[in-house]
């Protein structure tokens, strides 16, 4: 097995790894960096549990290969612990009951976060579209949509 040296930015810090170039980003995060907030649910990009941000955009980390990471910026749920917008989403997820088993939650939060970074006042349809690639079997999505809506209202309120 051949290894390659790959440099990218992970959660705001430059990193350099020596891995097989076709290793999945999901495995790099979970195994190499012990960042286990990113979950595997299907391995084919259908469930969204492994969602991370690639240069700010939501992507499935099970479909990204190590060789494609050179020079990119990757953000996981762990990288946004002190991020104000993420903290607001997290609080609202809890307050609205948007979390049950929680397995889809990190990916769901990152999809919501990417949406709000792009558009601070999305419509309900925008929200539904943004998280349509994140499967949740527990909640029926209603409280998740409500939590994201609530986060847009708080964000657009100048007093907050």
């Amino acid at each position: 097995m051949k290894f390659s040296t790959i440099k990218f930015e992970l959660n705001g810090k430059p990193v350099e790894i020596e891995v097989p170039p076709a290793m999945r980003l999901l495995d790099i995060l979970r195994e190499t960096f012990k960042l286990t907030g990113t979950k595997e649910g299907c391995g084919i990009g259908e469930c969204g549990a492994c969602t991370v941000l690639l240069n700010g955009q939501a992507v499935a980390s099970c479909l990204l290969l190590a060789g494609q990471l050179e020079g990119t910026k990757i953000t996981t749920i762990e990288g946004l612990v002190h991020d104000e917008r993420m903290n607001l989403l997290q609080r609202n997820f809890l307050e609205c009951g948007a979390v049950q088993c929680g397995f889809c939650t990190p990916g769901m939060l990152l999809s919501a976060y990417a949406l709000l970074q792009k558009d601070a006042r999305p419509t309900t349809d925008d929200i539904k579209n943004a998280i349509a690639g994140n499967l949740c079997r527990c909640t029926g999505y209603k409280q998740i949509i409500q939590a994201i809506q609530k986060s847009t209202e708080s964000l657009s309120d100048p007093d907050q």
């Binding site: 990009g45 690639l54 955009q57 939501a58 992507v59 499935a60 990204l64 998280i131 349509a132 690639g133």
Partner: peptide, 9 residues
Amino acid sequence: IGSTQIRNR
């Protein structure tokens, strides 16, 4: 096409 995550890639 697909989901946001897919369309982004």
